[in-house]
């Protein structure tokens, strides 16, 4: 990776971080309707994975999907407007944080149903294989999703049919308010072995590691369609959702999070590799300006009209 490429990964992570911090504030001010699940601490996963993707590749996501969405290249203003429930949002204010999608960018949707992205992405991968253009599909899911039955169904079919799908597990050790070890009697590497699916584990807070591992796996499946699993050990810094005080986590665990911050780790690596601190400062300023502009535009945008409720339930107007 060239220094410029590494700085670009830094910029993308910082964009997600600052966007979510802005959302956090807007939520505290009562401006974000509904639930808000932040992925602060997990930014390296989608940024690293997305480096291997083209716009024609498809991804689907879960309830903690802001990073996945932004990393796939969706418009920042449309993203903010959607989460604020505005008519100008990516989904015209009908989806919100848990359902952001941009089909034109291959982003098939965040999802409010745990593990629902797996079969949808498996189907998308089947479509890619049939279309024969070398495109692939990525599904992001959490460790908690591993307890769902669809994991078995999809790993099984993906392997049987050699589908070009990358299963990206963001293992942050938590499923809502319960630790993974109380949720899962096995582990994803064992599942990978059981199904004969290539499995890689990476430190999900080291963006270059994620990018390298994803790059290899994706390049392989473009050549010869086959599934792969990438398990990323990562950290959920905020509560399950905004408003969760996390009193079920012990203070040592929370105190250790800072040292594993993916953005700090990336910055340190860049400086150690000789990048001028001023470059990072400049990136930060640009990102903040971009977020601010997107937020301002989204805040000023109109809310959807009540008459919009019936639009788009079906493609053709009802008979």
């Amino acid at each position: 990776m060239t220094p410029n490429e590494r700085a670009e990964l830094y910029r993308r992570m910082l964009t997600i971080r600052r966007a979510e911090e802005r959302l956090q504030k807007l939520f505290a001010d009562g401006l974000v309707p509904g639930f808000l699940h932040l992925s602060i601490g997990q930014e390296a996963v989608p940024v690293g994975v997305s480096r291997a993707l083209t716009e024609a590749d498809t991804v689907s996501s879960n309830h903690r999907g802001h990073g996945h969405t932004l990393a796939k290249g969706v418009d920042l203003t449309g993203f903010f407007a959607e989460i604020l429930g505005k008519a100008t949002g990516l989904c015209r204010g009908r989806g919100g944080s848990m359902h952001v999608a941009d089909l034109s960018k291959g982003m098939l949707g965040a999802n409010g149903i745990v593990a629902a992205g797996l079969p949808i992405t498996t189907g998308s991968a089947l479509a890619h294989r049939m279309q024969g253009k070398g495109n692939i599909a990525v599904v992001y899911f959490g460790d908690g999703a591993l307890a769902e039955g669809l994991v078995h169904e999809c790993l099984n079919i993906a392997k049987l049919w050699s589908l070009p799908i990358l299963f990206v597990c963001e293992n942050n050790g938590w499923s809502e308010f319960s630790p993974t070890e109380r949720q899962l009697a096995t582990s994803l590497d064992k599942l990978g072995k059981a199904y004969g699916i290539t499995y890689r584990e990476v430190d999900g807070n080291l963006v270059e590691e994620v990018a390298r591992a994803a790059g290899k796996l994706v390049a392989g499946m473009r050549k010869a369609p086959a599934p792969a699993i990438l398990e990323c050990r990562t950290t959920r810094v905020r509560g399950h959702f905004e408003g969760d005080r996390q009193d079920y986590r012990d203070s040592d665990e929370i105190a250790a999070l800072d040292a594993r911050d993916p953005i700090r780790l990336c910055a340190e690596a860049l400086i150690a590799a000789g990048l001028d601190d001023a470059v990072l400062t400049a990136i930060a300023a640009e990102v903040e300006a971009e977020i601010e502009a997107a937020t301002e535009t989204a805040l000023a945008a109109p809310l959807p009209e009540a008459g919009d409720i019936l639009a788009d339930v079906y493609t053709r107007a009802e008979v």
Binding site: T58, S60, L103, L108, A116, L118, P119, I120, T121, T122, G123, S124, A125, L126, A127, H128, M130, Q131, A137, G149, L150, E153, C154, N156, I157, L160, W161
Partner: peptide
């Protein structure tokens, strides 16, 4: 390539249809 004998996995069969439909196919 046009006719898939699926394992006994109704949720996945249906979800695969959704995902393929969102990716330009008519399952």
């Amino acid at each position: 390539e046009r006719v898939y004998d699926a394992p006994i996995a109704e949720a996945a069969i249906t979800g695969i249809a959704v995902g393929a439909a969102l990716t330009g196919m008519k399952p």
